[in-house]
Amino acid sequence: MSMDTRRIDPEDVLLLAADTARVVLESGGETYRAEDAAQAVCSALGGAEAECFATPTGIQLSFTGFDGRVHSIVRRVKKRSMNLERLSRVNDLARRLYAGELDFDGAARELDLTERRPGYPLGVSLAAAATGTGFFTLLFGGGWNDALVAAAVGALLSRVTRILARRQISDFFTNIAGGAAAALLCLAAEHLGLAASADTTIIGVIMLLVPGVAITNAIRDTIAGDLVAGVARGADAFMAAAAISIGSGGAFELWRRLFPGTL
């Protein structure tokens, strides 16, 4: 096996390793995991002195091939979303390749399958969004009627943000629109007597957008010594929170002007 791996074109190894790291980052994996995965792929396939530098928005990777030349590649990471099944599959791929349970072709095929793997069907995702937002509203002290409103708005919001993301609308605008829509719908529900407290309902719905995990990961990256990645993730979380509150703050203001005295 060791003889075979040495004959794989270093350029192919480079592409496989960079794509592995890219999928880790696109699926919401930690920075060090992306770097470790790329290095594992390189050294499993005969690359020496593999070094990878990853940030949330890009990857730089280089190693010395069996031909004694240094090969390197730069990859941008454009879309990031949480996909935990994809993350564990790509992690497993790198691990098995490193352990010698997979060869180059197997790993390339596995990566391709992982990337094209369909997620949960639409109905399941909508039900999941409704469950998550509804029960968070209960957890934050809302009543059952608040939870029902939050579930309905949450399902709608998750669908709309997914469509906007697919149309490549920027996260910033998506979050402004999402924050505004969530606030307006919840205020309307309160006004119509469907929900008891718009505030609790809004915070349950907003959990879909809010970067709580992102700010925690930013600090985790910083603690782990990935300073550039940590600062970048912090900026990402900060901008997301700012956009959501610009949206919902604007919606509150609009409501105050349209229906004076109801807030």
């Binding site: 930690e30 709580g212 995990v213 929170a241 610009i246």
Partner: peptide, 27 residues
């Protein structure tokens, strides 16, 4: 990866609401 379980199980305690209220106050 441990992150798979951490990301989910940590959601109820993560300060998402705090981020939102902070920014809302500043807006």
């Amino acid at each position: 990866p441990a992150a798979v379980y951490i990301v989910c199980a940590i959601i109820p305690i993560v300060p998402g609401g705090g981020m939102y209220y902070t920014m809302l106050a500043s807006v």
